[in-house]
Design a protein around this nucleic acid. Structure first.
Lengths: 230, 230
DNA sequence: GTAAAATTAGACACCATTGTCTAAAACGTC
DNA sequence: GACGTTTTAGACAATGGTGTCTAATTTTAC
């Protein structure tokens, strides 16, 4: 077995992994059959067994693969967080769109959500890894990013972890029904969801410096401009 | 067959339904076996078949049963929405606690979430019913309730549907990790989650009348008291 | 071109599950 | 106590899936 002989080998391996992810996502672990996976991968059943020995082994390989990909995408997206925002609201909206588009509404996001929900209790070790490297970390990472914005006086936040979780929750608010249904939201829906989320987030955590704080003309009666379209 | 002979009959029927809900929730549709359900219901397998003819039929019966119960509980809880709040923030917190306790974190909530996620695409008709009578309606129902509060000047909301979805999303923000894991949050966690949610919600949608609007001593510099523990 | 490695189709034993059937037992009514 | 109904345990065929094996075929390296 030389180096080059791995080429086709690896291609098949990848093809199996891909097909398995698809089928496991559709059918769940017990519902998925090796025959179906092999067919979808355009590979004989025996090849699947040659590569992964048994179903459970294939399953964990798929999960790890998807998780790695999802994590890479997650941190790539996090690195686009607006640290020196031009217009904080607009920049946060754009960031929220990227986040939901690249990490939540894509195939991997759907797979992981479905998986953790349905097989998480049966495979605690998988869930542990997901918790440590996946969405478990996204909260703290985003908390740190919000802390920097707060430090710059752009946001007024007392608990960064809570704020981060709430930001994510708000972004998901309008999408949950969609994602549960299994459908992928359109770009317009994504944009509108992000807009609604950030607007409320800024109302709750904005500061005078943010521009969300147009002071009332007089007195305390209307101390913000929520009624006017912004 | 007399009226009274139905007693034991119905008891068994109910017992099967309950056991089936438990097992379907743990194992999913394909993963659950009739034998396991029968054992958990303390009933012979044949009795299960006598009552429900086949697995799929039992499954839909379970779903309908759980959905009916969950809906009843949902509307019961919605009827405790603070329409004439004494202290809006506190009342909303208490309501949020009831909502998550009775409708989201209980066994039925967990079952439905898991179910829609894992079998929703395979049984679109079940999902349809869930969408129409379940959480699909909760949004509009809550939107109407918030609209009344806004009409009274207690909240300042431009889009009631969005606000309702965001309220629910915020309540779930701190609980999602817990519910995905399958664990039931403690009362303290529930309370803290509700508190965080309502605080942010009130910051975003509160009005001067709400008391969340202690005017700044002077000027526009600090136009609210978020930094102080409330 | 040859040899090693990988892939394939097919057969196979094994097991779990579904759904049916039967005869015996338990239950409730009169 | 006799009767009809329900429940039960167990056997049963049929099905579909897992994982192994083999022998033939293809791919790849050198």
């Amino acid at each position: 077995m030389s180096v080059h002989s791995q080429r086709g080998h690896c291609a098949k391996r990848k093809s199996i992994l891909e097909a398995a992810a698809e089928v496991f996502c559709r059918q769940g672990f017990t519902g998925a059959s090796i025959d179906e996976i092999a067919a979808e991968a355009c590979v004989s059943r025996q090849t699947v067994y040659n590569h992964y020995r048994e179903k459970e082994n294939l399953f964990t390989a798929v999960v790890e693969d998807v998780m790695d990909r999802a994590n890479a995408m997650l941190f790539t997206t996090l690195s686009t967080f607006p640290e020196k925002p031009d217009n904080l609201e607009d920049d946060l909206i754009a960031f929220a769109v990227r986040l939901s588009h690249n990490c939540i509404c894509n195939q991997d996001g759907k797979f992981l959500r479905k998986l953790v929900q349905s097989e998480g209790e049966r495979y605690p070790h998988l869930f542990e890894s997901w918790r440590q490297h996946g969405p478990g970390k996204i909260g703290t990472a985003m908390a740190a990013l919000f802390a920097r914005l707060a430090h710059k006086g752009l946001l007024q936040i007392d608990d960064f972890d809570v704020a981060a979780r709430q930001f994510l929750a708000l972004v998901n608010a309008d999408l949950q029904m969609n994602t549960l249904f299994g459908a992928t939201p359109t770009d317009d829906e994504l944009d509108s969801a992000a807009r609604n989320a950030v607007r409320t987030f800024m109302r709750a955590y904005g500061t005078p410096a943010t521009g969300k704080f147009e002071p009332a003309p007089m007195g305390i009666a209307t101390s913000r401009s929520c009624e006017t379209p912004c």
